[in-house]
C-alpha cells in the first residue's frame, strides 16, 4: 500500500529529528556546550551565548546536510557547502596552500599593521572590540561559506598517539578549570589560583604586548586556514 502524504511527511520529520539529535551530540558540538556552560557559570553571558549559538548552528548545519545527502551519506563528507566551492580534496588543499603562500608577504605586512594599530587600543575598548569582532566574524562567515567535508579518506592516526594529545588537552583544561573554581568567586580573579586569562593580563597591559599577541593570533588563524 502506498503511504499517504501525511505519513510521508511524518516519516520525513522523524528522520530530520534523528539527524538533528545526532548533530546535537557531535563531539565538537558538545565541546561548545561545555564552554558555554562554564562561561555562564563565570557570569560571562555574552560568550556563553556565543558558544551556544555556534553549537546549535553546527548541529543544525549537520542535520541540514545529512538531510540533503540522506539516506546514504551519514558522515559529513562530500557535499560542497552552499556557494559552490569544491570540497577539501588533497588537490584543492594543495591549491589553497599554494595560493596562500603567494600572498604570505602581503598578509604578513597587513597583519603587522593591523596588530600595531589595534594593539594601540586599550583592551575591551570600543575600537578594540569592533576591530577584533569584525575580523573574527568575517573569518567565521568565510569558514561557514567555503568549508566542506573532505571527500578523501581521513588520515589514519594511531589511537595511542591521539590519546597522548588528548591527555595534554584535558590536563591543561583541568588546571584552568581548577584554578577557576579555586578563585574567591567565579567572577573574581585570583593571584593564588591564576587562570590563563589572568596570566595574560600582564602581557596585554602594554601596547607592545597586545600587538605581539594580536600578531600571534593572526598567525594562528593563517596556520589554520592553510591546513
Amino acid at each position: 500500500m502506498t503511504p499517504t502524504v501525511s505519513e510521508a511527511r511524518r516519516a520525513a520529520i522523524a528522520v530530520r529529528s534523528r539527524q538533528l539529535a545526532r548533530g546535537l551530540v557531535h563531539p565538537m558540538v558538545l565541546a561548545f556546550y561545555i564552554a558555554s556552560f562554564f562561561c555562564y557559570l563565570a557570569g560571562d553571558s555574552v560568550r556563553a551565548v556565543y558558544f551556544l549559538g555556534i553549537a546549535l548552528a553546527l548541529a543544525w548545519d549537520q542535520a541540514h546536510r545529512a538531510a540533503r545527502s540522506d539516506p546514504e551519506a551519514r558522515a559529513e563528507v562530500v557535499k560542497p557547502a552552499a556557494g559552490g566551492q569544491t570540497s577539501f580534496s588533497t588537490d584543492s588543499a594543495a591549491r589553497r596552500q599554494s595560493a596562500m603562500s603567494r600572498y604570505l608577504v602581503a598578509f604578513g605586512v597587513l597583519g603587522l599593521i593591523y596588530s600595531v594599530i589595534v594593539g594601540w587600543f586599550q583592551r575591551y575598548s570600543i575600537p578594540a572590540t569592533i576591530s577584533v569582532t569584525a575580523l573574527a566574524t568575517v573569518a567565521i562567515i568565510v569558514a561557514w561559506k567555503i568549508s566542506a567535508g573532505s571527500a578523501a579518506q581521513p588520515e589514519q592516526l594511531s589511537m595511542t598517539g591521539m590519546a597522548a594529545w588528548g591527555v595534554v588537552a584535558v590536563g591543561a583544561s583541568a588546571v584552568e578549570l581548577t584554578s577557576m573554581f579555586l578563585q574567591p568567586s567565579l567572577t573574581v580573579s585570583s593571584y593564588a589560583h591564576p587562570t590563563l586569562s589572568y596570566l595574560s593580563n600582564s602581557v596585554l597591559g602594554s601596547w607592545s604586548g597586545r600587538s605581539v599577541v594580536l600578531f600571534l593570533w593572526l598567525a594562528l588563524g593563517w596556520y589554520l586556514a592553510r591546513l
Partner: peptide, 10 residues
C-alpha cells in the same frame, strides 16, 4: 580561534 581573540580583546 575567533573566541581567543574575542576573549582577550573584546
Amino acid at each position: 580561534w575567533a573566541f581567543i581573540g574575542l576573549h582577550l580583546f573584546s
